[in-house]
Amino acid sequence: MSARRFTIDGLIGAIPIALLIGLWQALVSFGYAPPTLLPPPGLVFERMVHQLTSGAFQQAIAATVFRLFAGFAIAVVLGVGLGLAAAASPAVNALMRPIVRVLAPLPKVALYPALLLLLGFGHESKVVLVAADALFPILLSTYYGASTVEQKLIWSAMAAGTPPRQILFKVVLPAAAPSILTGCRIGLVISCIVVFLAEMITSTDGLGHVLVTAARTFQAVDMFVPLITISLLGLILNGLLQAARSYLLRGFPEV
């Protein structure tokens, strides 16, 4: 029953995507858009397959993925750590709250030129930018999750002989897991987007660089390929995180 409902939903959902590709094909076929501006979907797909097997493009993907993971990993470690600390200690909370209030709405991408000046055009400046952008959603959702853990869960663990020092890791961290993973999911999408933009802005290497190079030579086909690649990358990573989430949270209601 539910499996069938799922397939029906999937089919309905495929309609707009199919329509979009159909419209795209129609625009090209009926000559409304010149192929130099809007290449036909078949050509883009062909080019995509070709690129995915080429060494240079694979290297671009590798550079992007490395920066993405490095920045995201730093954001997770810092975000979860600081979020837990703010929930556990009123002093840390009082210090962090106003700083986060100021830094969270700051457009981090505006800091990128400063990062370039300080850290250079290599991996470091991009990794730091990704980390800075992904940090806040993870930090805030960790803090929110950790500060709303049900008191009686903590009491139950304390009565069962858990020393106060261990409560943070044995109760608060697992109890806040749903919230933390939601934050990580948002952080991951942000990481995907920011790494690509950073590569476009400085344009040294990576998928963003591939797009900018294509734009400079007006190669419309080559502009679509890196965009679709980063989107697929985002979807794959999101799917992996979702799988990890439903495994880790199998005991929690409403995953």
Binding site: K152, S156, A157, A159, A160, G161, A175, G251, F252
Partner: peptide, 26 residues
């Protein structure tokens, strides 16, 4: 708190991330 006094709450307060056995073994 200490293990010489065991609470049972109206809200159950079971650890949602642990199985039934895991909760009892805790």
């Amino acid at each position: 708190p200490g293990p010489d006094r065991g609470p049972v709450f109206q809200e159950f307060a079971l650890f949602p991330w642990k199985s039934v056995l895991g909760n009892v073994m805790y």
